[in-house]
C-alpha cells in the first residue's frame, strides 16, 4: 500500500503540491489526472523519493521512498525518454540493471523478459536513436522493470505515441496489474484513465480535487445524462439523473418518435467540471 499524507511542496512562491493525501492499495492501478502544471509530476517525484517534500509523508508499505530498501521496490518511467540514444537497447538495459545488484546469472534473463514484455526482442541490439517514438516509450518502460519493482510510477507514458504502441502499453499496464504490481499512472488523456484505472485522483493547482473510482467520480461530478428526443413535435432536450424513468415519461408525451440520443457523462466531463475550461499553457 502507498500512503500519502498531507504532502506540501513549494518551488519559490509557487505552491506546487497542497496538502495531498491519498491511499493506494497494493495491486491497483491508480490514475493521477490533471492539466499541465497541475502538480502531477511533482507529486510523483516526491512519492518516488526523487525530491523532498516541504511537509507531509509518503510510505511505500511503511518504507520511506528515499530509503535504499524502498528504492529496490520502485520503478520509475519518467515523462521524458530517459535512455541513452547512442547505446543499443541491450546496453541501456544492462546499465540500468547494473544499478540494482541483479545477480549476473539473472541479468540476461531479466533483460530478455523486459524486452519480450514490451515487444522489442528483435531490436535488442539496435541503437535507441534508430527507434520510433513508440519503441522508445516501450523501452523506457522496460528499463524500469528489470529489477521487478512492486511500485511502478508511470509519468505520462503515452505522450507522443502511435496507436499501436499505445495499445501495447495499455496491455503492459494491465499485465503488470495481473502480476500484482501497484501502478501509479499520470496522464491527461481521460480515456486512458477510464480504461485502465481502478481509482482516479484529479489534481489541479497542486490540490487533489477528487478521488475515487471512475464510477464514483462520474456519479459525483459528472452531472446528469443529456437526452435528446426528435419527434413530430420537434426536438426535445433534457438532462436526467434517472434516464430510464425520465425517458419513459418523455416518450409517453411524444408522437411518432424519429430519434433518441443520450450523452452520458464521462471522465473528461468530470475533469472539465472540476478543472474548468480555461486554457493551460
Amino acid at each position: 500500500m502507498i500512503q500519502v499524507d498531507a504532502l506540501n511542496k513549494h518551488f519559490g512562491s509557487i505552491h506546487a503540491v497542497k496538502d495531498v493525501s491519498l491511499e493506494i492499495p497494493t495491486g491497483q492501478i491508480f490514475g493521477l489526472l490533471g492539466p499541465n502544471g497541475a502538480g502531477k509530476s511533482t507529486s510523483i517525484s516526491i512519492m518516488t523519493g526523487l525530491i523532498d517534500c516541504d511537509s507531509g509523508s509518503v510510505a511505500l508499505n511503511g518504507l520511506n521512498p528515499q530509503s535504499k530498501q524502498a528504492r529496490f521496490k520502485i520503478g520509475l518511467i519518467p515523462q521524458s525518454i530517459a535512455l541513452y540514444e547512442e547505446l543499443s537497447a541491450v546496453d541501456n538495459l544492462s546499465f540500468f540493471a547494473s544499478l540494482y545488484d541483479i545477480p549476473k546469472n539473472k541479468m540476461s534473463e531479466r533483460m530478455d523478459w523486459a524486452l519480450e514484455f514490451v515487444g522489442l526482442s528483435d531490436r535488442a541490439n539496435d541503437r535507441v536513436s534508430q527507434f520510433s517514438g513508440g519503441m522508445k516509450r516501450r523501452l523506457n518502460l522496460a528499463a524500469s522493470l528489470l529489477h521487478d519493482p512492486d511500485y511502478i510510477f508511470m509519468d505520462e507514458p503515452t505522450a507522443g505515441v502511435d496507436p499501436q504502441s499505445r495499445n501495447k502499453l495499455f496491455e503492459n499496464v494491465l499485465k503488470l496489474k495481473e502480476l500484482g504490481k501497484t501502478v501509479i499512472y499520470t496522464t491527461h488523456y481521460m480515456e486512458e484513465a477510464q480504461k485502465l484505472c481502478d481509482k482516479v485522483g484529479i489534481i489541479d493547482h497542486g490540490q487533489l480535487l477528487a478521488l475515487g473510482t471512475v464510477d464514483e467520480l462520474l456519479k459525483q461530478y459528472g452531472g446528469d445524462t443529456k437526452v435528446s428526443i426528435s419527434s413530430e413535435q420537434g426536438v426535445q432536450h433534457f438532462e436526467s439523473g434517472d434516464v430510464s424513468q425520465d425517458l419513459l415519461e418523455a416518450l409517453k408525451k411524444s408522437n411518432k418518435v424519429y430519434d433518441i440520443s443520450m450523452h452520458r457523462p464521462d471522465l473528461e466531463t468530470v475533469f472539465l467540471n472540476l478543472t474548468g475550461r480555461q486554457l493551460r499553457d
Binding site: S80, A82, F96, D101, A143
Partner: peptide
C-alpha cells in the same frame, strides 16, 4: 536534461 539522472537517483545508488 535526458531524464536519465532521475533514473539514477531513484535507483539504490
Amino acid at each position: 536534461t535526458l531524464g536519465t539522472m532521475n533514473r539514477l537517483i531513484v535507483a539504490p545508488i
